[in-house]
Design a protein around this nucleic acid. Structure first.
Lengths: 170, 170
DNA sequence: TATTATTCAGATAATAAATGTCCGAATAAT
DNA sequence: ATTATTCGGACATTTATTATCTGAATAATA
């Protein structure tokens, strides 16, 4: 039961995009360089975010990524689901319908109690992540970081962030 | 983010063991046959349960498995952790310490806010599973099943369950 | 008490999923 | 229209899961 490494990268990348000045963006290579991770694989995660409507992208010269909506409308679950998918972690294979005491499929209209229990636990997990937004994370970072560190980030963003053309696709 | 298939099998197997008459056990092959799953792989999951102290085993002729403690003291989280391990699903690789705006390790005494958020969600997941016991599952099964199905199970158990020697190891 | 049948337990292959990389399609500036 | 730049999906590689097999341990039997 592992959450893919891409989720970690995607959340960090989205948090960084949240710090961008308005109307500017970062290309995948810059986002990867910021955390010193492989650019091609980072790009893969960003694609997933765009597909899910979390980021907007612009292609061609001076292209890049930006958030598609306000940070308080992007939850950690949104990002997790975008990257790792939203299929249940517990996969019920209905083995209650196998073997010498198999249940007839007619008697399986209600879900297996075991599967239902896991579904409830997963719901608790999802709800918890859904209740935390990028804005919440950003607020904590601002509160708990040394001022010089925040200054370094703003500085780096100003140097790397490029004005995006307004004709952003998707 | 997947829970291994072995967890599903282990929970079903443990539920079945819970229905055993006192002093009796089931061998791994019988537990596998009950749900029509590969015996060798089922055995692997049962080993994990024994290692975690959830089941007791007896080896040799007329050997087999039984629950090591009352069903209301065995939670779904106990079984999940025994089979899949209890390491966190979200693995923080501390990428905040990488790149041009890297945090010094001195400034990383407090956990990364993102990692903390996922840890909190996982705690909600675990607590939810920990609050459900095998006894709870058994109660639901009894309440929601057709009487003839319960009768078939009891019948099968009486035919397959063998008296275990008291000298159960581990 | 030695033997044998039976069972569990850890070590060993096969398969699927996650991780990482590459090249073509698309866009915007020149 | 051309060219430089960027994203997007298709392609290898590595790791984890799934499945199997052989040996160690136990208890019944002679």
């Amino acid at each position: 039961m592992q959450i893919s490494k891409g989720v970690e990268w995607a959340v960090h990348a989205a948090s960084l995009l949240n710090g961008l000045p308005a109307g500017r963006g970062l290309k995948a290579e810059a986002l990867a360089r910021y955390h010193d991770v492989p650019a091609a694989y980072m790009a893969k995660q960003l694609q997933a975010l765009s597909k899910a409507g979390i980021t907007k992208t612009s292609r061609g010269a001076h292209g890049g990524y930006r958030l598609a909506k306000p940070a308080d409308q992007i939850s950690l679950w949104d990002i997790t689901a975008a990257v790792d998918g939203n299929s249940p972690a517990f996969r019920c294979t209905e083995i209650r319908q196998n073997g010498p005491c198999a249940l007839k499929s007619d008697d399986c209209k209600r879900p297996c109690q075991i599967a239902a229990a896991f579904a409830s636990a997963e719901l608790a997990f999802r709800d918890n992540l859904a209740s935390i937004s990028l804005a919440d994370i950003a607020g904590q970072v601002v509160n708990e970081s040394e001022p010089e560190h925040l200054f370094a980030i703003v500085n780096w963003l100003n140097a790397e962030a490029e004005p995006l053309s307004d004709k952003s696709s998707l």
